[in-house]
Design a protein around this nucleic acid. Sequence first.
RNA 1: GGGCGUUUAGCUCAGCUGGGAGAGCGCUACCCUUACAAGGUAGAUGUCGGGGGUUCGAUCCCCUCAACGCCCACCA
Length: 884
Amino acid sequence: MEIQNNLPTTFEPAETENKWYDIWLRNKSFKPKKGKQNKTFTIMMPPPNVTGKLHMGHALDATTQDTLIRYKRMKGFETLWIPGTDHAGISTQAVVEKLLWKEEKKTRHDLGRDEFLKKVWSWKEEYGSEIVNQQKKIGVSCDWDYSTFTLDEVPNKAVKKFFVMLYNEGLIYQNDYIVNWDPILQSAISDAEVDHKDVKGFFYHVKYKVKETGEEIVIATTRPETMFADTAVAVNPEDERFSHLVGKTAIIPICNREIPIIGDEHVDIEKGTGCLKVTPGHDFNDFEIGKRHNLPIINILNKDGSFNENAPEITGLKPKEARAKVEELLGELLVEKKEHLNSVGHGERSGEIVEPIVSKQWFVNINKMAEESVRAVEDGDMTFFPKGWENTYFSWLRNPKDWCISRQLWWGHQIPVYYCDNSHQWAAEEHPESCPHCSSTNFTQDPDVLDTWFSSGLWPLSTLGWPDEEKMKELRFDDFYPNSVLVTGFDIIFFWVARMMMMSQKVTNQVPFKDVYIHALVRDKQGRKMSKSLGNGIDPIEMINQYGADAMRFTLAAGSGYNRDLNLDPERIEGYRNFVNKLWNAFRFVYPFLDKASDTLPTKSEWHLHDKWILAELNDVAKKMNDALDIYRFDDASSAIYQFVYDKFCSWYIELSKNILYGDDEKAKVIRATMLKYCFKKIVTLMHPMTPFITEEIWSYLSSNDEKLIDQEYVEFEDKLVNNEVLEMMNKFIEVTSGVRNIRASVNLKPKDEVDVRLFTDDKDLAKFIYESRHFLKDLANVKSGKIKSKAADRPKKSASFATTSTEIFIPLEGLIDINEQISRIKKEMDKTQVDFQKNEGKLNNQNFVQNAKPEVIAEVKEKADQLYEKLNSLKLILKSFED
RNA sequence: GGGCGUUUAGCUCAGCUGGGAGAGCGCUACCCUUACAAGGUAGAUGUCGGGGGUUCGAUCCCCUCAACGCCCACCA
């Protein structure tokens, strides 16, 4: 039979992907539509930085969310996926500053704030959409009309509204506080933005003189250069060596300033020398000690990290040079210098050592909000998947520290606080006309901007229009808030998840999302984090170009469950590309028969056993996939459909269909073609959330109208399709077929060599089915002829043989086979079966087992033992047949 | 120092409330069989990190040891 088939032998992703993405957009398929569930399903996309380039983490983010969105859309939820981008204060400003320097040799200060911000905006307009275009390549089905930028008008209103609200409640306050100062960014950064790294340094012992007694005490420090900012020496009041000194005065060497000696519990008697120099201006612990003892604060650092005139001997020097200078100046007063591994804070963005500096900053008191957010998870208002991540969340929120929200940058939401020339201070949502206290029109706005996370924290609200009432109506805040699920990585549970919870709860008294699915961190195949410096990053766009978006998506989905790492090897993408191609070729097989197929299933009485079987298997996959996707087990869903397509549909159902489709029975052909078409529709429907492009492409050949797969209903589990008898029968048939193939392989028969088989079974239904399937056996195992007899019958002599639990298989091949080889093969099989059998039989003979185990377990073991016993007997008979 | 997690076939990993040790990739042999060589058929591979305990029964629960990873805090 000549087959008309003009489909390419391999699936070509590039064209198909672009084509369908455009069609979906044109058809407005990504817009929310009322469905049969009469419920909404909302996800907001974690907004990537405008400066960003799409990396594998984004790709995973996008894939898992898109899979969920497409799944829920097909399930009949009114689905909204909100995209957006983040202004990313620090990194965007840095990118533009760098560019400005490169092109014009100017700094932002040369331009001034307004001019500089104009530059950043125009940069954003030009390059900010690159990452969005990359997202589209992945196939994200979000509603682009909802797209929001964190510096848009609405988020800006949200930020101001929230700020003013907390300011007026006294929860936002300004304070001199010791903060992490990044000398490169020249801004304060929050604790969470500091990475601690071990740095080789030294432990110094330095002599200070006691003024009153003339004694010398030795203090221990890792940073001698900060001695110019010392405002006390502290000892533990319980320390017998030094307690008599409390209340006396110490003299700092070099600058000879006098400072008090105080007693403080913080000092560890065991550590160092027991004497501690207290530098409240440049050390977090010392700052606390200073507060307890009302010590003055001296700042000896400039904004760029160099020393200022408060440390005259080292003014202008950077810490490293300063330390060398101080060592020199100390001379003999430096009594010891030991190597020491020190954990030093580094700016997450700049990589530079951060300096603790006391400065005026804005803080949010989060105590109360944190409590509420802890409670929400404890009460199950919000649930983490996997559950373990709630520990990370709790550990941070149960020990809340005030959040430093001011940043000394220009690019961002400017703090809505104003100062008038009569030193009044107030916060306002709208730019004021005059001071509300004294009506002065001479006022300035605080120059600082807010931490990026301050606006990100309000994302669930601002993306739906809050606080602008008209916008909220237009964007349907009430329908889509709270979100259904947040999908993100564990690295931003503190930064983002916790803050969205606190801020959203504060505003709405509701959690911002019901579930949080924390996906894995993508690493390279050796488990290393992908990083620029290692050069081990895998570019998702490159992977898409090479293997197709579907293959990449399926790989990421198959690797995503409740794991915390996803080690990605491009070879795996290649493997799943092969799978996508397999599906394509399966479709190429079906394609020429589509014109025979009907769109309605034949009546049940006309179903072949194969049909009942594949529908039962299909039903089983539908259940597995629905169950898995409902709880974010993308890995289970992927592996279920993968196994079905390869091991059930392609290997058996299609193979078994050839005999019918290439045969003469026209009616049977129509039925089989119809069944194949039906199955294919279900398969591409099931797979669509993971691999949208190829499935939509195949659907276009299967659908009789212009409807798109993206809008179809998902496949649900149906009770009436469960059919265990048929499953059992087919499994036995498959076992027998494989048995024949196994024998063929064992005697090195070529595929072309036909065989004559003798089957012995007492299962009458099976015997009947195999008899009816004799033509199929010819196709599947090149069986030319055969006989089926009961086990009471005589076995043929000197045959290659094999036994399944139901059937003995003999292939008479006298003269062609190596008897000894056959005997050893059977013996090996016997040994294996014997071990298995004894394991089960042993249990049954164990009184304790029989008395204690659950009845269904006992029944299972018994059945297993019976089957193995039968197989064992069959194998014995086969062996005997060689001896005769 | 506190917390979390990991350790299962050469590699990457799955194994739900204890009752058959699995998948993918890789590997071996044979095959370009008319959907697919990005394929097919058959096959090999594991003291489930070590030790102890609970149990009729432990990859799964408990204790302990070891290795590795991550997070937080701190290190004068």
